[in-house]
Design a protein around this nucleic acid. Structure first.
Lengths: 216, 216
DNA sequence: GCTTGTCTCAATGTTAACATTCCTACATGC
DNA sequence: GCATGTAGGAATGTTAACATTGAGACAAGC
């Protein structure tokens, strides 16, 4: 019976999770101010852990803090989206190469892809989408690569939910089949083919979600 | 007359810088404990900013914190070094591609390479080495790429100084010419050629510095 | 009318005291 | 002798009060 390390987490982590979820739920839309006293009162903790949590979220790029001017939820410009896409490409390519090279288990990824069938709302689907790519990076067995992904993960999540609220048409259906294809490509072990599919996947998400408005 | 934003920095940043420099100076070798009270007394600040600074350094991978057990300077295993190298490759390739594609100014990089001639100790040389690669990433004009680089930058720095203390032979001379070649390759605008040179550069540093001991 | 100076207030930055946790060492029981 | 239980102490986690900063409103001067 293998059980993981039973490490305590500390209030800061808990608080960070709550705030993160609140942002993903849309309760704090991009640009909204995250006041320390407001949060500490709502969560019934002191400002210390809240401060640490906000710093942590800042590290994820989810919020932005300015000296003596407070922290706000990150607003993604079109340039930001472009940056996220290019960096994600570099990271994901490395992940795919390692997954194929090490012939890693694809079970977790297949599970994540399957979980999409149970998702009904666009909101849940985005969560599944992110979870799938989490599984890809996890399978790459490269802690710093996972860390680099986590540094932009929340921003990608933010991007997906803000855009998905604009146009949902076709998103839910297309996404499901795409991820199944990605798993299938990895099963075959063809690196170049898998890379190509992942590239197309990113491209589709970008095209589909970026069309509505031109600039920002 | 263009002058940058005159933003205040806050104590935490200052403290983080001081601690970081202390680590790079070898005053806190890998594995050493960084006690909050000790630091706060030495720097004549309260524990608050010290805590935030340590969290910041943890984000850079320079230190490691465990719940109720304090923070220590990161110890890099051979697997860590391998991870750093592969991730750095992915990031640096993207950076080089962007620098060439955008025909960015190479002045800062050339300056950094030239600064190496003035470095006498291995210690200073390592600083210049890192500064050069900082310039490469800066020229890529990609804030999140810079951020990803900064997340491993300190660890690469740590790796270089710990290994350089073991074998300095040939390091100082070889490094200088290598960086000059890198600038020259970028000047030519040949992407593939530049990528190859950067790969060799990483390989040399790894071979030269990794030989002394086998595993960790 | 536009700029400049001052005031006020709200929010963050900082501090120091209190609470909790974990490790070490020692004692106890078998 | 080995395992278990139990204090002691040192470190981090948390809290609440105090200090500092910056933005907006308003008035004075040109």
């Amino acid at each position: 019976m293998t059980l993981g390390p039973a490490r305590r987490r500390g209030l800061s982590n808990e608080v960070a999770d709550v705030i993160r979820e609140a942002i993903f739920d849309g309760r704090y839309p991009p640009g909204a101010a995250l006041r320390e006293v407001e949060l500490s009162e709502a969560l019934e903790v002191s400002r210390g852990p809240v401060r640490e949590a906000l710093r942590s979220l800042e590290g994820e790029g989810l919020v932005r803090t300015e000296w003596h001017r407070g922290t706000t939820v990150t607003v993604l410009s079109s340039q930001d989206v472009a940056e996220l896409d290019s960096l994600r490409e570099a990271l994901e390519n490395l992940a795919v190469r390692r997954v194929v090279a090490a012939d890693a288990s694809l079970e977790a990824m297949a599970d994540a892809a399957a979980a999409m069938d149970r998702a009904s709302t666009p909101h849940e689907m985005v969560r599944c989408d992110i979870a799938f790519h989490d599984a890809v990076f996890a399978a790459a067995d490269h802690s710093r690569l996972v860390q680099a992904w986590q540094a932009i993960r929340s921003q990608v999540h933010l991007f997906l939910i803000t855009r998905v609220n604009v146009s949902t048409a076709g998103y839910l259906e297309q996404i499901r089949s795409e991820h199944r294809d990605l798993v299938a490509a990895l099963r075959l072990g063809n690196v170049e083919g898998a890379l190509k599919l992942f590239a197309e996947h990113r491209r589709h998400a970008l095209d589909l979600l970026t069309v509505p408005d031109g600039a920002n």
